[in-house]
Design a protein around this nucleic acid. Structure first.
Lengths: 212, 212
DNA sequence: ATAGAATAGTGAACACCGTTCAAAATTCAA
DNA sequence: TTGAATTTTGAACGGTGTTCACTATTCTAT
């Protein structure tokens, strides 16, 4: 057949993406399949492959969208402008609350974002990496006042360390792999980590091993 | 057919488990399938379901085995007995090195251990939880001298927090989701976290919000 | 020794999955 | 109006987990 005039390729691409998003939101990651998307938009499965090279590419773009939505969500958080540890702690706590709220409202998309490992081992595309960096810049800004003496790269390493640590707690808790081992909510555990981490950043050996 | 006399049910269970382990080690998590296991041990696929209720149960038991092997690996690490932060740091660094070495030698099994989410949402069995706790006790012991003033439960929470944080770093790095964001090896990042965390544990508000 | 119950193992079948691609349907250009 | 170009199809391929009627074998009891 040919162009059913119904939808341009670009429209189709969006329709497929939206259908995928709906499926994941409504039924979890396991509901995402080419056939179900096709059924939802009233096309044949093969049509998806005219517009996306494969399902991994579709997921990548969907994850990019989730990343963007997460950034939008977190940049709404009102941050304190003071440069002391107390303010940084409060700010990080606010970000944490925002992040946990986002996860709560977008649990399945968030799982897809972090748990999905694409079959191919190619590097992620530049536009995707940019979004990750943009997201991390939110934490970076909060830590900036405390790390003004250090270089941009080292600062980003510190932010990323904190971020990855929080992610570890939240994702293990989500997978129910912390239940045995911990008696508190992941929120409380994250708060503890933030406080301890910030406290630990004071006057100790930095990344390069020098004392500040 | 009946008992081919070849193997008792218990033998069969072990054979299947070993075949599964071999498949994962040799070709990654995606190589694990009922048909491939069956082929490897010279039985029909259905036989597996006479001995395991489903593949998730098989994976759970395999993960239990990996957990046990990881514990054995880590309990070989010689730890310093001093009670100061420096010793704790050294000890954790040694454990980290041991852990990273284990991952290096058992990457696919380790991925199966942490990434696999069973379809059913039942709680994990008690014997499995015990193994997780036993593993965590290794970190617990190292932190014990620094947290002697706190209760056992709170100490375990602190250990689990550190553990989950390290896991977050290592597993994000493994999924190549830190490459953009960080310039160092996951080993270095983990070392930074350990140092900062230990430093931060000194004289700051504890889990309950009180100052020590 | 033989009949029958119990057990062990089978493998085709079911309902899925991602992906491909020759063919068909439609539109556009000449 | 014809023919080229394009879009869409859906059957087909090779895979997945899981089930279950059936068969083959062994054990038990007569």
């Amino acid at each position: 057949m040919a162009r059913r005039v119904d939808h341009s390729p670009d429209e189709l691409k969006v329709m497929i993406l939206d259908a995928a998003e709906d499926l994941v939101m409504a039924g979890g990651v396991s509901e995402l399949s080419a056939r179900k998307i096709a059924q939802k938009i009233g096309y044949a499965p093969g049509t998806i492959y005219n517009v996306y090279t494969n399902i991994d590419e579709l997921i990548l773009i969907l994850n990019g969208k989730t990343l963007e939505r997460l950034y939008d969500h977190l940049s709404m958080v009102r941050l304190d402008g003071e440069a002391d540890i107390g303010s940084a702690n409060e700010n990080l706590e606010k970000l944490l609350i925002g992040y946990l709220a986002f996860i709560d409202e977008n649990r399945s998309l968030w799982r897809l974002l972090f748990d999905h490992v694409p079959s191919s081992e190619d590097d992620l595309p530049e536009w995707y990496n940019q979004r990750v960096l943009k997201l991390l810049s939110v934490i970076d800004q909060v830590l900036l006042p405390l790390l003004s003496g250090r270089g941009a790269e080292e600062r980003r390493d510190v932010s990323a360390t904190l971020w990855a640590s929080l992610h570890g707690i939240i994702s293990l808790a989500d997978k129910k792999k912390l239940d045995v081992v911990i008696s508190r909510s992941s929120h409380d555990v994250c708060s503890l980590l933030i406080t301890t981490f910030l406290n630990g950043l004071k006057d100790h050996a930095d990344f390069t091993g020098k004392i500040q």
